[in-house]
């Protein structure tokens, strides 16, 4: 996978899906429109200030709350390259993997990286490089099965192979 590089926007712990994409926008399915409301109830300036490729670094339990897949979809569509956090709420975690949106688990990165830092992330190795500070962090490795899903761009690729295998046998 291609390396991610961008400026860091930093938020606290327990960022829930209601503030990432409030319920009043959850009937929207078009990613471009979803992007307009990304982080609407967390940071009203978010969508105006970010640039494509920027990285969100946040506290633990990121994405807790609702199962709404529009939460990672809206972040992905906003142009954010990936999210780094000590831990992710489990539904957000699987949604991100299933739609092929890069997430990285690292407590040290959250503690030490500051807003505005320039970071580079290698998704293949999980190495997070803070170019501003000259520091490096290693994200927790994904289990092999999840790496397979991610390398296919999401869960759909897995399902297609499974269906092909079944129809062949």
């Amino acid at each position: 996978m291609e390396k991610l590089r961008g400026r860091v926007w930093k938020y606290g712990p327990n960022i829930n899906t209601d503030v990432i994409i409030p319920g009043r926008y959850c009937h929207i399915t078009d990613p471009k429109e979803l992007a307009r409301y990304c982080m609407a109830d967390l940071d009203t300036e978010f969508i105006k200030k970010i640039k494509p490729g920027d990285i969100v670094v946040a506290g633990g339990n990121f994405g807790c709350g609702s199962s709404r897949e529009v939460a990672p979809l809206s972040i992905k569509a906003s142009g954010i390259g990936g999210v780094v956090a000590p831990s992710f709420a489990r539904i957000f975690y699987r949604n991100a993997i299933n739609i092929g949106f890069p997430i990285f688990e690292s407590a040290a990165a959250y503690e030490q990286i500051d807003e505005g830092d320039e970071v580079e992330i290698d998704p293949d190795t999980g190495t997070i490089h803070d170019l501003t500070k000259g520091t490096e962090y290693k994200a927790a490795a994904f289990p092999e099965f999840l790496q397979t899903i991610m390398s296919r761009g999401g869960l759909r690729g897995y399902a297609e192979e499974e269906l092909a295998r079944q129809s062949a046998s």
């Binding site: 897949e69 539904i91 699987r94 949604n95």
Partner: peptide, 9 residues
């Protein structure tokens, strides 16, 4: 609970 892609698959 799961997301929509999980449901589809």
């Amino acid at each position: 609970g799961v997301g929509s892609t999980d449901v589809a698959v």
